[in-house]
Design a protein around this nucleic acid. Structure first.
Lengths: 114, 114
DNA sequence: ACATCATTTCGTTATTTAACGAAGTGATTG
DNA sequence: CAATCACTTCGTTAAATAACGAAATGATGT
């Protein structure tokens, strides 16, 4: 019960839902996510730790950077299914579309890291 | 986005998850739910209104009583799927099993209403 | 009509949450 | 080795949430 409630709590904030959707088929470092969300680094870090703690994300250090990606290898059924279902619910969400658009530009122009 | 976040927020409280699971294949009045959760009537009423507002429940007045049940006729894909998936995640949860046990006894003995 | 019962609404309190900036950590670069 | 960069942790503040009891609402039964 605690586990499933923690999972739903993780998804009950719009900025965290945006993060999860940004990371579909992508690996991003904290500063890229910060750029899109337009929040302070500490706030973004906190959101990422909640998503990691609940099982949605894994991180990987590489030099100065910490990269986050979806925990696609999870054994948790709820996490696995919700990661698949979320995009269906948010495919046509303007915020999510806008985030993805910005991300592509940001990547092309190397807006943030490297 | 607001809609899906509202849905996850509704499920991000253990008492509300318990309510949803109690109502699987059952219709219950507020006082029965109150009996199981062991919370004040006003608190239970608030939880029910959040679940109703987010689309999980519908209510029906009948005399003195208000009956709540799952909104199985919803058009909302997320609500529909989450109602199906939740029991899979909580099948072996002790709290949920205990609630269902108490509910059967309560119904037999007409512990609460009627 | 009146008392009672089931439920909701209101006002309050304690806890949790989201946000920030400042300070701390650890790796990289000059 | 000092400065910088990416990120996290800490401490604070404002807002949201969960809980309660008291009062309001609305139907039932006497």
């Amino acid at each position: 019960m605690d586990n499933i409630v923690k999972i739903f709590k993780a998804l009950s904030d719009p900025n965290r839902v945006r993060i999860v959707q940004m990371l579909v088929n992508k690996t991003l470092c904290v500063c890229e996510i910060q750029e899109i969300l337009n929040l302070s680094a500490s706030t973004v870090s906190k959101h990422l730790s909640i998503l990691k703690e609940s099982g949605f994300l894994v991180d990987e250090k590489s030099g100065k950077w910490v990269y986050y990606r979806l925990n696609t290898n999870t054994n948790d059924l709820a996490i696995k299914q919700l990661m698949l279902l979320l995009p269906l619910y948010l495919n046509d969400d303007n915020q999510i579309l806008s985030d993805k658009g910005k991300l592509n530009i940001a990547c092309k122009d190397e807006l943030c890291c490297i």
